[in-house]
Design a protein around this nucleic acid. Structure first.
Lengths: 200, 200, 200, 200
DNA sequence: AATGAATGAGCATTCATTCAT
DNA sequence: TATGAATGAATGCTCATTCAT
């Protein structure tokens, strides 16, 4: 294995604890207890508390990237690819609320601390969106006038906000499939009816 | 004035400090120093540190609501209204990065603690979006098939993610106007070209 | 009047508050609220919090001394005088549990701080006991072998411990009269039966 | 040992500090310094400051109970037993002024907080007195007319007040033996001379 | 004299991190 | 490697006291 048993036990314990309490309210001893190791053991695998956070985030996003890329590999129609991305993101987030929350909270907490924003896993993840958009533009499917980097943010932001509400657990919950279809309808076709005079 | 001088001085100091350091890293004494009052004075106006956060959030969102509602009052075309909302949100966030960050952080930190999610200022704010969508559907401008409550989340999420990147200050910055137009294009017309066979 | 209206209002408010919360847990603002004056007003009449304590104590003991001396004035039989002292002390303490507690707590709290222990009202109060004993010894009623200063402590200590239990409010409560008679029986006649061989 | 080294070091440091400064004026860091441990270490052994106070009290009283019971074990004459109790109490308090003060203060501070007054160590301690009295009454040595529970309070109160004065350190100091004899004389024989007409 | 808003020193408690075992 | 007892810096909050009005 690449990562030792203890390492991954700590990571998944930390994911759970961070999600439940938030980074700042989580105690190292909570994580240690959850991972069934001694407090000190954590410091054999991580430099400090923040390092655990980064690792959790990178690892989880990394796994997400793998899953998404694998799902995308079998498809080359940009329209379908965007759908796959949305469906995958939403279903993972709905299934794993811990992860959803960690992304939610830590993305905001640590953004400034992680200065090399462009070189991390998270960037890699959302850049998948922009590359799909670019692909669609090259194939003359998506309009050339939209900036892939803005679409990337808008698309991820939309999915993320929906996941947030799911994680908080107060909204009328739509199914993943329903939500995916709605997001696709909005992002692909827009809100306006086809015969609308102001149509782009 | 309704709010005393000290109260508003503390609110704006806290906004600044929370934005700069994040809620948990901000010390009461930082806020006090920034507001040029004694530490203890803060507790004449707020119950505790978290209460300050809530107050900052509610106050800032409240002012945002006012501004947006005022701007929307002169318009009754849903297409224009969505544009106005986007422009206002983005321009305020670009101008006031502190606010952008406080919304970012606060929204995630306290969401679980504020259980009556549906009854707070933030809900009032994003419900403006859904009411515009409903208006558009009633006027047969927006397609009836989209759920206003999902559009609300997607639209806000998109604007919020863009604001986040602006606040973090690492992305190639588009102008507010450019971004507004892009968001409108995406949300109104979608990504697909008009002659696209899979068009909704 | 010797003391202004505000002064005495504060004293009696402080007595109540100290008794209820103890000196250290009592806040100046509690006393101010109870006395219906502003916090700052208290400092027009007292130097500091501790000064209030001393004043309360001295004043209450002073009033106790007056009452006891008045009751003793009509009597010159030491046996009766001791009875009067006990009855007065117990009845005042039973009626005014606030006072009982203030004496309890503050006697212990402040004893070391009040270094001139021998020159205060409290000393004046318990010295009444020793002077009665001396009087009885002079009249050949009380045995000469007992040290008046030890009797003073023992007699006051006994009354005080009983008052303490009353103030705490957990003991089977005897009446003042019953208790007075018991104390008198113990202190005058002792526990031993008259025909006891080891009798003094 | 049953109690770890740190635990007992903290207890005795706390006894010293509480006695010297009083509970409320004692700082945790004072106790930590006195015990030569870090501040945080104290919280590995005690829940909070008040818990230390209770522990000190219970532990010290517990040790007192042991000593007294051991000394009483060899005696079955109630007259001698009361003497032993008085002598032991006074000698321990004279030797250990810290303990005397902690009992003084603690007893008054926490009595209301410790609602199960009858079930604590302190009750166990003073109930030794009443059981001696009952024993004496059964053996027809002590008069049946006195209530053991009032004698208990009076006897302890007398010893305690004397100890208090010793701890404060302002009274003309009698020896333990002298004081014991005096207390015995008062409590066993009373103040009245044998031929006194009002004799019980 | 009276007020009460403002002050800021003070402290109990927490918890990330270390290190002797 | 692994442990967990020990550390001690850090901080939210309180409240006696002051002082401008």
């Amino acid at each position: 294995m690449k990562t030792s048993n203890k390492h991954s036990k700590i990571i998944s314990a930390a994911t759970k604890v961070f999600a439940k309490k938030g980074f700042f309210n989580a105690r190292i001893s909570d994580i240690a207890k959850e991972a069934k190791v001694a407090d000190g053991t954590i410091y054999l695998y991580f430099n400090n508390k923040f390092d655990i956070l980064i690792s959790v985030f990178e690892e989880e996003i990394g796994s997400l990237i793998e899953q998404v890329k694998k799902a995308l590999a079998v498809e080359d129609d940009p329209r379908k690819m965007l759908e796959i991305f949305a469906r995958k993101h939403l279903s993972v987030m709905k299934k794993n609320k811990n992860l959803a929350e960690v992304i939610q909270i830590e993305l905001r907490q640590s953004a400034k601390l992680i200065k090399d924003y462009r070189n991390n896993k998270f960037s890699e993840y959302i850049n998948i969106i922009s590359s799909i958009v670019i692909l669609g533009q090259e194939q003359n499917i998506y309009r050339a006038s939209v900036h892939p980097n803005l679409v990337k943010l808008a698309f991820f932001g939309a999915l993320d906000e929906i996941s947030r509400i799911w994680a908080v657990g107060v909204a009328p919950e739509y199914t993943v499939e329903e939500t995916t279809q709605q997001i696709l309808e909005i992002f692909c076709c827009g809100l306006l009816l086809p015969n609308e005079p102001l149509r782009c």
